[in-house]
Simulated scan of single mutants.
Amino acid sequence: MMQPLPTKTYDWQGFSCAYRFAPATATQTPMLFIHPVGVGLSGRFWDRCIAAWQEGDRPLYVPDLLGCGESAMPHVAYYPEDWAAQLKFFIESVIDQVVVLVVQGALFPVAMELVSQCPERIRGMILSGPPTASLITEYTDRFWQQVRWNLFDSPLGWGFYLYARQESFLRQFSIDQLFAQPDAVDSEWLRMLAAGCANLDSRHAVYSFLSGFWRKDYRSAMKHVHQPVLVVMGNQASSISRDGVADSPLDRLKFYTETFPNAEGVVIPGRNVLPYESTTAFVEASQQFLAAKEL
């Protein structure tokens, strides 16, 4: 396993934001990795993927979203538009080049908001296990999202977060909802989550995700994305939402490839955290896509 990349910081709206950077010996398009949000998750989610990817052919940027990892953790409700604005600033002020986005799971809406805010800066997207169609095609009333936030941002939510930080819960949740193979939930994964939620202020980003601020109908916006898109789905992909409509990996793949004007899909072994559980297959599929599209 490679040594962790050193952490760098930049300031955005008065907050310190962290990122890691793997330089390149060539001048190909940089990659920007958008991590999932959940108990203990941050840019460190991509460590295995970066280690497999790191051949020096293109720069790799791995930011921590505000409220996560080593970035500042203000007590606010985080919307996809907020994280997209953070990343837009990061692209324009730190990277200062066009990028290809690599996006994990339900952070898909952040990528969509980012493409909307700065389309000229995005050359393509790679989506790892994006949400089931029902979660991004139905309008969710902001009033009820705020009600959920208020419930989480209370002693009730505090108790939930203390419980959810326990290793036993994190292991079982990972087995039940994220990984295809139970033995893939290893000590490295659990140590990463424990470090990521050590600071209890990390709960606010998790509350924001669970409140569903990211849930709205993105179909119209998707139809206006003309950059090349690769959708990578696990052959055992499942929805982690209780009210999400169950669909097969091929059904979900079909939705994305038919809604985006310029998309293609591939199914690889794994479930919902492909860059971690099926790292080699995910990196190979991504690199083949980049080469074919000359990105």
Rank of each mutant, 00 (worst) to 15 (best):
M2F: 08
P4T: 05
K8T: 08
T9S: 02
D11G: 04
D11K: 14
G14T: 00
G14L: 04
F15Y: 15
F15V: 03
Y19Q: 06
R20F: 00
F21P: 00
A22T: 09
A22V: 06
A24S: 10
T25F: 01
T25S: 02
T29R: 05
P36T: 01
G38W: 12
S42Q: 07
F45L: 03
R48Q: 10
C49M: 14
E55Y: 00
D64Y: 06
L66T: 05
L66F: 09
L66A: 03
G69I: 06
H75V: 07
A77C: 03
P80G: 13
D82C: 04
W83A: 00
A84D: 13
A84S: 15
A85S: 14
I91E: 02
V100K: 02
V102I: 12
V102F: 15
G105H: 10
A111I: 12
A111Q: 08
E120D: 13
G124K: 13
M125K: 08
S128Y: 13
P131D: 11
T132G: 12
T132H: 11
S134L: 04
L135S: 13
L135H: 09
T137G: 03
E138I: 12
E138K: 15
R142C: 01
R142H: 09
V147P: 12
V147M: 15
N150S: 14
N150M: 14
W158D: 02
G159W: 10
F160A: 13
R165T: 11
Q166R: 14
F169Q: 11
F173G: 09
F173Y: 15
S174T: 03
S174I: 06
I175V: 15
Q181N: 15
W189K: 00
G196L: 07
C197P: 08
A198P: 00
D201V: 00
H204N: 06
A205I: 03
Y207M: 13
Y207E: 08
S208I: 09
W214I: 07
R219Q: 13
R219E: 03
M222D: 03
M222K: 08
H224V: 01
H226D: 09
P228H: 08
V231D: 06
N235W: 08
A237M: 14
D247H: 14
L250Q: 12
L250D: 12
P261K: 00
E264H: 00
I268K: 07
G270R: 11
L274R: 09
L274W: 10
F282G: 12
A285Q: 09
F289T: 12
F289E: 07
E294G: 06
